[in-house]
Design a protein around this nucleic acid. Structure first.
Lengths: 247, 247
DNA sequence: CCCATTAATCATCTGTGATTAGTGCCACGC
DNA sequence: GCGTGGCACTAATCACAGATGATTAATGGG
């Protein structure tokens, strides 16, 4: 069901690109030129389906043309495809774990989460503040016990993003936080950053409680700046060239 | 090849969730409970494949267990799945076109692109500046002719993101720019914003030429702020409730 | 002795590709 | 001007490969 939809999309695209009507043979050749190697009968079958669904119509004898509905569907497909491609590109960038990309990632997180923190300062609910208080004290207790506090860190940042009431920022924070290698590294340097992370978070939370957007933004900015500096030092220590072995 | 990988993932997950060994019959039942309806022999075949690839091993007679490699692969699968889910959530948010989401989107773009502009001011190459010059003059000419200048707008912002040398920011800009309804609306209000867009862009470009990060950030911030204000006015005019009819 | 598991065999179903029939247009030659 | 062969297209038929499911050994443990 998946790749067939893909094939049909390709066929629609070819028909749209071609001026005038076009038939199975020519479509087959063009598909082949695109690297899609299918037989002509299959193209015919897909064409029958597309015709049945009203996306193409027979134009006399010399082949088929797009209907308005087909053009419309294709436009929607294109938009979806562009979205998917952009998303995939971002995911690929996020998957990479070399030094520069980790720092790039942190720089992006810094501006995004700083804005989220500023917004949160004006929009946060008492309920959310209570939740953050709980997270923070759990994190402090965990770090004191020698744990990493990673879970609480993630939860804290997520709560702030959620409190910003900006769904796009919230989604972005969630997405950018899904980086395995980054989490691993924070794990490794937790001895250095664990306790300071709690202090940083407390400062952010205090700004939220004071409903001071400026202070919240500054606190979050500083938090992620120092994290980036730590990361940079850590990576520099183990691999000056920036090519830490990851996979 | 696709759904089979999916099925195998499900099977791995079930084995991992189950304490101790588990066989085809029980896996089949659990799969069925998940809504995946496959026959027991198929489960057996997948298990053979997984065993051949070293992800599971036979545990005596009572079924199969995960190997270390299987556990590792599953962990990787989980990370990938989380990434995909987060990405899909963001795409869903971006797909929505109501007033609040459009403004959220613009707010996110504002901080991201402002940072990109600031970085670009220090990293931009003469080459890129020349390219932006070209884009800008084409846009000015187009707007003077009564066109929307939308293509050039997109290209300009993309160039700035690229000049920031931060791939994450660049991907984010590309992703956030893929919003059909937003582009449609800008099209609709181009009479109001078309010429001012050129002025804004010129101001940004001037800051880049002066290699002044502060000015670049401020110019971009202002550009997207006014755009948001325009959008807000436009949406307010046509639908005070924020529920513009889309698609 | 019964049960769960693995694995093999056989039938079926689906999708695909090769081939072929049927149809109308076009160009060429008379 | 008209018949005729070539050509592109549609669509049907047949065969084949692959996956799936039902059934059935075969094995070992409670």
């Amino acid at each position: 069901m998946k790749e067939r939809l893909d094939l049909r999309e390709d066929i629609l695209r070819i028909i749209a690109a071609h001026s005038g009507a076009i038939g199975q043979g020519a479509i087959n050749l063009l598909l082949r030129k695109q690297g899609v190697l299918i037989s002509m009968p299959t193209v015919g079958r897909r064409l029958q389906e597309l015709e049945f669904e009203g996306f193409v119509a027979k134009a006399g004898i010399e082949g088929r043309v797009l209907t308005d509905r087909g053009r419309h569907a294709l436009k929607r497909f294109d938009a979806e495809a562009r979205l998917r491609v952009s998303g995939a590109a971002l995911l690929d960038t996020l998957r990479r774990g070399d030094r520069k990309h980790l720092l790039d990632l942190l720089a992006a997180r810094r501006v995004i989460e700083a804005e989220a923190a500023a917004l949160a300062a004006t929009h946060v609910s008492p309920n959310a503040i209570a939740k953050m208080d709980g997270i923070l004290s759990r994190q402090a207790a965990g770090v004191a016990r020698g744990e990493t506090g990673l879970e609480e860190d993630i939860a804290f940042h997520r709560e702030i993003a959620r409190a910003s009431r900006n769904e796009v920022l919230c989604s972005l924070v969630a997405l950018l936080r899904q980086h395995r290698r980054y989490n691993l590294i924070v794990n490794s340097i937790r001895a250095a950053v664990g306790s300071r992370m709690v202090v940083d978070h407390a400062r952010i939370l205090a700004a939220l409680k004071a409903r001071d957007p400026h202070a919240a933004r500054a606190a979050m900015d500083r938090h992620l700046r120092t994290l980036a500096a730590d990361l940079n030092r850590y990576l520099g220590r183990w691999s000056p060239d920036g090519g830490v072995r990851g996979r």
